[in-house]
Nucleic acid binder design. Sequence first.
DNA 1: CGCTTCCCGATTGTATACGAAACATGTCCA
DNA 2: TGGACATGTTTCGTATACAATCGGGAAGCG
Lengths: 225, 225
Amino acid sequence: MARQVTGSDEVAAKLAVAIHEHRLAPGTKLNEDEVGDIFGVSRTVVRAGLQQLAHQHLVELKRNRGAFVAKPSVREAREVFEARSLLEPTTARSAAKRAGKAEIASLRAHVAAEHEALAAGDDGRALHLSGTFHNEIARIAKQETIAEFIAQLVSRSSLIIALYWERRAAICESHAHDALIRALESGDADEAEALMKSHLLDLYTSLDLRDAPPQPKSLKEALNG
Amino acid sequence: MARQVTGSDEVAAKLAVAIHEHRLAPGTKLNEDEVGDIFGVSRTVVRAGLQQLAHQHLVELKRNRGAFVAKPSVREAREVFEARSLLEPTTARSAAKRAGKAEIASLRAHVAAEHEALAAGDDGRALHLSGTFHNEIARIAKQETIAEFIAQLVSRSSLIIALYWERRAAICESHAHDALIRALESGDADEAEALMKSHLLDLYTSLDLRDAPPQPKSLKEALNG
DNA sequence: CGCTTCCCGATTGTATACGAAACATGTCCA
DNA sequence: TGGACATGTTTCGTATACAATCGGGAAGCG
């Protein structure tokens, strides 16, 4: 089928994007043979890719049962945003100190692409870009280690949004990213940090994290869970 | 050979402990067949385990070259401690608010074991326990997500210490951990946070992070790097 | 009619086999 | 004598084959 120059990394990356864009819903079973046929590779490489995603908590590996797109619990959702609130504001501060013209331009292009996708009705892609914007900030801060953590947290946030997002209509038109870019451009570290903090809080409070289990589609699933 | 009930997780865990205890030096080649023979499993499961460790940056996977125990760069060392300084003080604060009698007792036992290992001359084990102490703190804070990050950072710190530690003699007799336990016991969140912050700073400043490359064992290695 | 039990199918876990890439060595030529 | 090329060997990357395990469904029983 597809070219066989692809390694397990590529499989993992493509699945990750599909999850970010909400084309794969939480709980979806990822059959090894099926995925292998789709990408034109053998189960060996598919398994390797799935394990990568499992380490990032994007898929859940159940022994002798297979791989499923992860369904973060309410507890996990809170923890993810707690972690983000520890890492990202300080990272935004660092980014404000380091951002040059090239970085600012890149960020503006990123946001433009996001708005474009939104206008085209491609909500999934818009959501994905909205998430990777945070990765870009971390990259500008030149903290590879922290950037990696943030990338993982952003990925997991995408799953959390898929499960617990309430006001879908008001999707991301908050222009919070624009404000952040302005703060970075003017090198205002305090402002950048504060904006990032409130942006994350906004995101967090827009979730419906009542104790209800993550919408059990069926009774059976709820019982076997 | 060992029992075959072992999965890839077990292989990864055992290798990780060996690395933590400095029984496997940075740069050591981990031949798949060799490791497989040692643990009595096939290359398939060894590869899975090595990939796990690679995701934690404990081993480095070079395409068509094999797996090597990671050799963190100076840059990476700085980043790791930067990340720890963002995560751990706040986590210690949380732990101070939640720690009960059972948790305190567990921590004391942990430190006791550490001193015991040190007295027995088992420096590697002492170092390992000294690291996992931080994991325990994170566990008490009941932040699984952050705890996982910290666990990874502690692991990587172990490698960094192996490469850049200067005053080996003064190993950990700082009693910083004892002071931390006292703060947790009395529920003094501010004190716990401050102690953790200074403890990490102590660790960081005791490293020799000059720009020199991580001690190239041989000229060849330096050139091929 | 509902519950339990057992067996079979499907899917994963592990081992092995084969092809490919990289390093080392040895030879040939300038 | 020194360097460059060719070849051999080792080790990894991927595919395939076999074995173990779990879930579901049909049959049997209360």
